[in-house]
Design a protein around this nucleic acid. Structure first.
Length: 301
DNA sequence: AACCCGGGGAC
DNA sequence: GTCCCAGGGTT
């Protein structure tokens, strides 16, 4: 008789088989990638598509292969190397993370979920991903892809709820293999969500469509539509991005305030953006009023 | 819980 | 133009 355990096992076998012949050739999946390399890839991939991350990760790891190497770099160099990956605060936190690893963890990535979770820029997802993909441990790797696949295949709804609940965690824990396949399973489900089980799904290419609760139910529409923020154009974030682009293009040299103001139409908004960048440690104002990437000795926060 | 934080590619 | 992306931190 069919049981939930059987369903779970069939799903695992099929998705692992699918992954074996459909996995993308991402550079950090190469044999020999260090735990630090995995951690860097996960931080870069926070809200940035992996196809954009890949070339940046190669250049980054070539320049700073270890936590010690990154820790000794200047913040300005770190931000400039981050370039246009977006959310440059991640670059500062990664820099700080490397320094904490050197100060408290002998320059190595800890094989410990709680320790990882305590590091700057490392949240629930990234800590679990490092445990699974760097160390081969069983961990709940709940990214946007895994949550979407889980919601559809096992729950039968179009999308996951907006926030992770304890119920979703325990339901996910029940289907994650208990054995050594868990990391590969997570990787495979992520890949399935990224390539096939997209927001607009490609069920004709899906290896588990015939056992997908949502597909079998006729793909009912999502109950609630997530409210979208206003367009990016004209936001404070775009203004910040414009200032950061100027500072990067200056190659670490200082930029005149008039040049910065000339890059944005709203003077008050630009001032707000600049102040927030200074507060975040992403920019620095010199005594003469010019602005640059943070070139001072160190940032301690 | 709500809000903030970039940038680019696909459509 | 809209939607989406291997999330995390702050309040």
């Amino acid at each position: 008789m069919p049981t939930a355990a059987n369903h779970t096992e069939r799903f695992a076998a099929k998705v692992l088989d699918w992954y074996a012949s459909n996995a993308r050739n991402l550079p950090w999946r190469a044999a020999g990638t260090s735990p630090w390399g995995v951690l860097v890839s996960e931080v870069m991939a926070q809200q940035t598509p992996v196809t954009r991350v890949a070339p940046q990760w190669v250049a980054w790891m070539n320049r700073w292969p270890t936590p010690a190497a990154l820790a000794s770099a200047s913040a300005a160099d770190v931000i400039a190397q981050w370039d246009r990956l977006g959310y440059p605060r991640r670059a500062l936190r990664l820099h700080e993370c490397a320094q904490v690893l050197c100060q408290r963890f002998h320059g190595e990535v800890p094989r410990d979920l709680t320790a990882l979770r305590s590091l700057p820029g490392i949240g629930d997802y990234t800590a679990a991903a490092v445990m699974a993909f760097a160390f081969g441990e069983r961990a709940l790797v709940l990214d946007i892809n895994v949550r979407r696949v889980h919601a559809r295949v096992f729950v039968g709804i179009a999308n996951h709820p907006p926030h992770i609940t304890t119920g979703e965690r325990s339901a996910f824990d029940a289907v994650l293999p208990k054995d050594e396949r868990a990391p590969q399973w997570s990787q495979a489900v992520m890949e399935l969500g990224a390539l096939v089980c997209r927001p607009v799904p490609a069920c004709e290419k899906c290896p588990v469509a015939k056992s997908c609760a949502w597909h079998l139910a006729g793909q009912p529409a999502a109950q609630t539509r997530a409210r979208r923020p206003q367009s990016y154009v004209g936001t404070d974030r775009q203004a910040r991005g414009r200032v950061m682009a100027l500072l990067r293009d200056a190659g670490g040299n200082a930029v005149d305030i008039a040049t910065i103001e000339g890059a944005w139409h709203d003077r008050e908004q630009l001032q707000r953006a600049l102040q927030s960048l200074l507060a975040d440690g992403l920019a620095e104002m010199r005594r003469d009023g010019q602005v640059s990437l943070p070139v001072s000795a160190s940032i301690t926060r």
